[in-house]
Design a protein around this nucleic acid. Structure first.
Length: 356
DNA sequence: AATACGTTCAACCGCCCCCGC
DNA sequence: CGCGGGGGCGGTTGAACGTAT
């Protein structure tokens, strides 16, 4: 029983990717995007790979702005507090860490952070093979590795995953020991950072009812976008309520700190934070366009200020392949100004690709 | 120097969810 | 409404490399 595999295992290559394969995949996606179909993609470009393998390679290694290497203390704090709150939801945790992939975070957690926090040495795989199905971990909580999948643990132990038990251990440790014990290697006695309300950031919390965007707000954003696009001869965007709902949800979730931190969702995204109130949609778009248009050098396809961030809002706005936009405004908590989010589909700003 | 053991991380596997038909 | 397929995700594996004995 079960479903057919997504690709013919006999005819696809497995294992490490060669530089040639990487180059082929990267060049194609940067030029054409994924086309919305990973399964068909390898055939199109003549790669003997499973579509899922291509997707993974792109997301975890080839796509722009991927961060590799050591995690910062701040990143460790985020991983720790989110793991305690939600467990091994690596994709959600990754969404809070720009440039990090879920795979990276998962690996980092399993190989380093967990040991650091639980203060135990993870048994080697060889040792694990000889281990009793249930045992006592360093912190005193029972961990049953047989667990849910039919091991010999008690019903209570079976009801809790080892991940949940780890989280309980972590929570107890952090509650009692926060000052003496830090998630990070640092021994500094600083107060734990205030992260945004987690519940507000979770994509699967109950959604508020989708309300159509106020017409003047939508047209304000849309017209300002399309005016900028018209100037470079790019076809107009259409307003998309799904994108607007996504933007609204993130803007509301972010209104507590109004930090310019991306949601890392499936769409392109421009963020804005202005002090005070009274910001209208056209003001927000104007802030992106007027300041950045001059910084974009179409001849070299780069930002004159050096960093791609310096004109990235503008290039997303005029990105030819983007067809839809949806935006939202939110008021920052404590009178700290106005926050705006615009979501774009398909997303733009692929490195090496010209916006128009 | 040889071997065993430990660590890291890219990649695979298989399940679940969502969306289009 | 049910079904099928693709995408997304978490768990796991295995190869390569590092370290200890």
């Amino acid at each position: 029983m079960g479903r057919a595999p997504c690709c013919d295992k006999a005819s696809v290559k497995k294992g490490p990717w060669s530089p040639e394969e990487d180059a082929k995949l990267k060049a194609y996606i940067e030029e054409n995007g994924t086309g919305g179909n990973w399964i068909a993609l390898p055939q199109k470009i003549g790669l003997k790979r499973c579509g899922k393998s291509c997707r993974l390679r792109w997301l975890n290694y080839l796509r722009p702005n991927i961060k590799h290497g050591d995690f910062t203390e701040e990143e460790e704090h985020i991983i720790c507090s989110l793991y305690i709150s939600i467990g091994s939801r690596w994709s959600i945790i990754a969404a809070q860490l720009p440039g990090r992939t879920d795979n990276d975070i998962k690996n980092y957690w399993n190989t380093k952070l967990k040991k650091k926090l639980l203060g135990k040495r993870a048994p080697s795989r060889r040792a694990r093979a000889n281990q009793e199905p249930c045992g006592l971990a360093g912190g005193g909580a029972a961990i049953c590795s047989g667990g849910i999948n039919g091991g010999s643990g008690t019903a209570a132990a079976q009801a809790l995953s080892s991940s949940a038990l780890e989280r309980i251990q972590l929570h107890m440790r952090l509650q009692g020991l926060y000052n003496a014990f830090s998630c990070t290697t640092s021994s500094s006695n600083v107060a734990p950072p205030q992260w945004p309300k987690l519940e507000a950031l979770l994509p699967n919390r109950p959604l508020p009812p989708v309300q159509p965007t106020d017409a003047s707000l939508a047209s304000g954003f849309l017209d300002a976008h399309n005016a900028a696009r018209r100037q470079v001869g790019v076809s107009p965007l259409r307003w998309d309520e799904k994108l607007a709902a996504y933007a609204r949800r993130y803007a509301e979730a972010r209104s507590g700190d109004c930090a310019l931190v991306h949601s890392h969702g499936p769409y392109g995204e421009n963020l804005f934070h202005g002090s005070g109130g009274g910001w209208k949609p056209e003001d927000v778009v104007a802030a992106w366009v007027s300041q950045e248009r001059a910084l974009y050098d179409a001849r070299s396809n780069s930002c004159r200020a050096g960093s791609s961030a310096a004109c990235g809002h503008y290039t997303q706005i005029v990105w030819r392949r983007t067809t839809a936009v949806g935006c939202a405004l939110a008021t920052c908590a404590g009178g700290r100004g106005t926050y705006a989010v615009c979501s774009y589909n398909p997303p733009g700003n692929y490195v090496g690709v010209r916006p128009y």
